[in-house]
Amino acid sequence: MKHKQNATELLKTSLGVLKMKTPISVASGTFDLETLEFYDQNCLGAFVCKTITREPKKGNTPPRLYETEAGLINSIGLQNPGLDMFIKENLPRYRDVLAVPLIVSFSGSSIDEFCRMLEILEAQDGISGYEINISCPNVENEGIAFGTQADVVHKLVSRLKPITKRELCIKLSPNVTDIAQIAKAAEDGGATSLALINSLYGMAIDYETGMSRVKMGVGGYTGIGIKPVALALTYKTAQAVSIPIVAMGGIYDWKDALEFIWAGASAIALGTAHFVNPLAAPEVMMGLGEYILGKGLSIKDIRGACRFS
């Protein structure tokens, strides 16, 4: 399909409910208003905040970071001020500053708590959608505890769906036997989109002393090293569901972004990339823009069109 439109038109994409001006989103916990000091936010199609929980969370015992040969291990443990403080302090700032849709990422410790949090957030203006984090590898009772069993995912999403008409994006873990099965359960439950992948499990040890590099031992592995895994899981998921996918995992530049769109993603998110290139988002937009203009293809044309012969 050949287009004569400008890049602005060709870069448009959409999730289930949410229209995005560009296919570029950000991975929860790697990006905040501080990053937006570096460039014009309009290169983003959506802004995802750091995951919040019902009560404040202190986070994991440091050290929490280690940079491996290829990518980063983190063990933050969802440190956040809790839902009430988020609504009181963070949300007004987001409303003031953001010109792009805000997606609130949150996690709960029971299905009832997820529902209660969603009800509270529904009463707030300035939120375009939710990322339901059922995949954080660094906390015990929230996060991944909900994301590894298809029946639990189905039950959770079915309970959340009637509460909101906003974007309901379920963030999936790669640390499962069959991501397609979990994805299908989320879709059947009423998810309007999926975000994947959250961090892989990862670990690093000081070979000399035997000391674990992060205090908690096993952490979440992100960045350039996980890209092939993330790409494969994006492809598998896209084959299994028909709802849109926000893909992430080791995307550092526009070429990486394109690979994920070919594999079936409607949008991509940058995460660890922000830490190695603060200008990653505008650079990805420029690169994607030049590519699609040159080829005369839109994001929608490319999505899921990867070839095998």
Binding site: E37, L65, I76
Partner: peptide
């Protein structure tokens, strides 16, 4: 040890 250096990632606490 830091990743972002600007208060975003909570890695250096």
């Amino acid at each position: 040890y830091m990743a972002c250096g600007i208060g975003v990632c909570h890695g250096c606490t």
